[in-house]
């Protein structure tokens, strides 16, 4: 069982992570580098001497920097994959069918728990954005992921209406409590860049997570078929 989880998670996590990393490099890195021109003070978009062109030279592909980014995206997705496949294994044990098609729904649920719900309180930030105390943000971030994942599992597998009610409370609680926000706004990047960055972050994450779910379901069911064929 353990080796089956590890195999599925490694293949699915690395494959989805590489694709997410390439999407990030193409669609987000130019926005991030552009925002860094404002973070370093090289550009000032407000209260400066005049209008700043929206077209800026942000530099091309940097092998070390961008290579590391892709590797770390793959690493993060491999981490996501281990958690996702562990949950799939627990469900599979209880008779739930896991394959590429159902994996898509698992991936969507993972996107909601790990990206959309925490992102609704702590939107993905461009460099130079102001933020609250990091410890407080990490605590809220982890708690929101845990509460949302648990709530989605309760909605998917709960049979009692009371469980559904409890799930909705769990889904809403982090947002009613509210994420920690900075005391003052000091962001350097134009809102146009910040909005683009947050939107693209969620879009890339949606692609990455749905692929992760499908790959994980595929490798899990393939391994199952192999075992049955060998038996």
């Amino acid at each position: 069982m353990f080796s089956k989880i590890v195999t599925s998670a490694l293949f699915a996590g690395f494959a989805a992570g590489l694709i997410a990393g390439l999407l990030q490099l193409n669609f987000m890195q130019p926005v991030l580098l552009h925002a860094e021109l404002y973070e370093t003070g090289q550009l000032v978009h407000f209260g400066g001497p005049g209008n700043v062109s929206a077209a800026q030279e942000t530099g091309g592909f940097n092998l070390t920097r961008d290579g590391l980014s892709i590797l770390f995206v793959a690493l993060a997705y491999t981490g996501f994959a281990f958690m996702l496949v562990a949950a799939m294994a627990a469900a599979s044990d209880r008779g739930v069918t896991i394959n590429a098609r159902t994996g898509l729904i698992w991936g969507l649920a993972g996107f909601i728990a790990f990206q959309l719900a925490p992102g609704a309180g702590l939107p993905p930030e461009v460099p130079g954005a102001a933020a609250a105390d990091m410890g407080a943000r990490q605590l809220w971030w982890f708690s929101t992921i845990a509460a949302t994942a648990l709530a989605l599992a309760m909605i998917a597998f709960g049979r009692n209406p009371l469980v559904l009610v409890a799930a909705v409370v769990l889904l809403l609680a982090p947002h009613v409590i509210g994420a920690p926000h900075p005391d003052a706004f000091a962001g350097t990047a134009p809102p146009e860049l910040a909005g683009m960055f947050a939107a693209r972050s969620l879009a890339v994450a949606l692609a990455g997570w749905t692929l992760l779910g499908m790959f994980a379901g595929y490798f899990w069911s393939r391994d199952e078929a192999d075992v049955k064929a060998a038996a």
């Binding site: 491999t78 990206q115 992102g119 939107p123 930030e125 972050s201």
Partner: peptide, 30 residues
């Protein structure tokens, strides 16, 4: 999985932070 995610996304060691910097912004890690 939790350990991998924490190492890639949340750990504050500076060399790790620098290497993972762009990914952390892009994935939305605090």
């Amino acid at each position: 999985g939790l350990t991998l995610m924490f190492a890639a996304g949340n750990l504050q060691a500076s060399s790790l932070h620098d290497a993972a910097h762009d990914m952390r912004h892009a994935v939305g890690f605090p």
